[in-house]
Design a protein around this nucleic acid. Structure first.
Lengths: 138, 138
DNA sequence: GTATCTGCAAACCATTTGCATAGAT
DNA sequence: ATCTATGCAAATGGTTTGCAGATAC
């Protein structure tokens, strides 16, 4: 899903497309970090629209969550924002405070079956690792 | 691990065993909810030691986390406390705000292998489910 | 006796809300 | 013209800290 796709989707859902929202969407899609905190996201968007308020970012993100465009979860007291891709695993290294996406479909399918999850369940698997280091294979 | 085991462990680590701490440990072990929030835990402990302060609970829980006796994670803005059992899966129903323990060893072992986690890594798998309902098999 | 613990109160800080003005359609 | 969005500022609420007196050992 690229920037224009997402803007079209939002427009079709009745959201108004403002300059602020355009930059929020662009930032979400272009940002290298796939799991920014609200604060990180805010700072990055402000680089593009210096006058935007946190309120505006906040209410937009809330809307995006309602529409299922992003998922929100908390890590160490901060809200993390993630553009909604297919189900995957976030490998969360709590020592380094670093998240790595794992796209392995077998693992997800295996878990689905084990956990009795149906197709319509949207899932996000956060694997919290309490250790000094995680294998760098990924 | 029962109450006395845990108290012995704490004593061996240099912690002083106070009446407050005894009841915190007992509550942690006896509570039906395996993943209470700090607030829930506080209210339950207060039922046993009405004069205990939140500060005392808080600092004790911090110590227990440092010693690896409990794990802490956040759900919907609240800190959840979990007595440290073997690696397992928390099936988190975000609609009902309910957590179910999944003890399936195959699933954990499968994930370990898939994710390249070594034996010494302590892991906790939180599966966030964004759906109206989860199969009641568990 | 001494190092640690307790409990009170205040500080902290990310999130959330209220509302008057501005803007998209 | 109307309905929604923006941005300021204040409120909220869970977490965290400072410290004086109390307690475990």
């Amino acid at each position: 899903m690229d920037v224009n796709d997402m803007l079209s989707l939002l427009r079709s859902k009745g959201m108004k497309i403002t300059p602020q929202r355009i930059e929020i969407v662009r930032t979400l899609i272009e940002l290298k970090d796939n799991h920014p905190s609200l604060k990180q996201l805010y700072e990055e968007v402000r680089r593009r629209v210096p006058t935007i308020s946190f309120s505006t970012l906040y209410s937009t993100i809330q809307k995006l969550e309602e529409l299922g465009v992003v998922k929100l979860f908390d890590l160490l007291g901060e809200t993390r924002v993630e553009v909604n891709k297919r189900p995957h695993i976030n490998l969360i290294d709590l020592k380094k405070n670093k998240i790595t996406d794992i796209l392995d479909e077998d693992a997800i399918e295996f878990l689905r079956r084990k956990l009795g999850l149906r197709e319509e369940h949207f899932i996000l698997v956060n694997v919290l690792v309490y250790a000094d280091s995680i294998d760098e294979r990924h």
